[in-house]
Computed example of a mutant assay.
Amino acid sequence: MAASARRLCHIAFHVPAGQPLAQDLQLLFGFQPLAVREADGWRQLALRSGDAVFLVNEGAGPQEPLYGLDPRHAVPSATNLCFDVVDTGAAARALVARGCSVPVPPVSVRDSQGTATYAVVRSPVGNLSLTLLERAGFGGPFLPGFRPVPCATRPGWVSHVDHLTLACTCGSSPTLMRWFHDCLDFRHLPLSPGEDPELGLEVTAGSGPGGLKLTALQTTPGSAAPTLVLAESLPGAASGQDQVEQFLARHRGPGLQHVGLYTPDIIEATERVAVAGGQLLAPPEAYYQQPGKERQILAAGHEPSQLARQGILLDGDEGKFLLQVFTKSLFPEDTFFLELIQRQGATGFGQGNIRALWQSVQEEQASRNQET
């Protein structure tokens, strides 16, 4: 182990000037401006909902944006995960010793609120980099170098980041799992009883070949870092590309496919997103007609007609349930999207919901292809 990720500080995005991501996060998903930095050709805006912080790097400057890298990627993208660590210098030296690329060695940034030290590491997942941040000596609202943004304080729609799903090339999950274990102390989190870490959880797309393989990773007890989920396609699909393959093609390689945002009240949060104009994926029509689904929803304390109307998926049993709803892509390239998730005792991701998401995304992409 080279470093231990204690918690997620923020997720950074790179978008061209004028791209509406920052505006959409505020208007459609209840994020509020937290801090801003405008320098060296960059406008960096941090937005928050609860403990979930997104940093939108807009533009393209001659230097790297503060606390990250400019991957010069071909399409708008989530490009960086920033984790709090105890000692940035020690973590960076250990990663270099393991052969990792550290294009930004430890550097300290100071302003009137204190000091933070960070280093940036290249990950093996496409254009995604990792920032290791030490900020115990900083007392401001975000990070040194940013000025606070005055705004009306209101309750956020989500409380924190539940999980991060990375779209990976076929067969790469075992290698990536070992990298995140050796470098950031992430450990295998079984999604099914007796799951083999090398095999993960396989979710078939139906009666034919193809489907999805998921491998989940979590940090050690006491850490507040979200779960990492590695997603790759199973070989043998009959025809065309599934959504992981389409992400890889449209994103121009592996990357962060979606962020699961935890909400304590998914019904209210989904309603607020819909009223604000956010676009949500519609589950397959047959999802709510599955045998036992109505009884399952009632056992969780919800009304089947309401969940169906809002497109909320529910899975679980024995008093432990999981509720999820998914947005359409936040970018025209049909790549990155968000998930709202509420847990009623459940710790996994619900195989029934995974299949439903798989089908709903496939149907959405088929619809898009027909339109073009």
Rank of each mutant, 00 (worst) to 15 (best):
Q113C: 12
G139T: 09
H181I: 11
S305P: 02
T175P: 00
P150A: 08
V149N: 01
L307S: 03
D162R: 09
E58P: 01
C100N: 07
T372E: 13
L212V: 14
Q241R: 12
V259D: 03
Y287N: 05
P332K: 09
Q113D: 12
G255P: 04
N57D: 10
D317N: 08
L189K: 10
V125M: 05
A60Y: 09
D242I: 06
S101Y: 00
G114C: 08
Q257H: 13
R72E: 13
Q370E: 13
S112Q: 13
C168N: 10
L281Y: 03
A225G: 05
D265A: 08
Q23K: 13
G200M: 07
M1I: 12
K320M: 14
A269L: 12
N57S: 07
H73T: 06
K328M: 15
K293D: 02
F83L: 06
V229W: 03
Q342N: 06
S173H: 09
A22K: 02
A274C: 13
P190Y: 09
P332L: 07
A225K: 03
S129A: 14
V325W: 03
P190A: 00
D196F: 14
T263Q: 02
R98E: 15
Q218H: 15
R43T: 06
A286C: 13
T204K: 12
A276S: 10
G156A: 08
G126Q: 00
E363S: 10
Q362N: 11
A116W: 07
A17G: 12
C168D: 04
L201Q: 05
C100G: 04
P103Y: 14
G99I: 05
R93W: 15
N369K: 13
V361D: 04
Y287T: 05
A282S: 12
R135G: 00
A90M: 11
K293P: 04
G137C: 11
A152Y: 12
R368C: 14
V107M: 11
F29H: 05
I266Q: 02
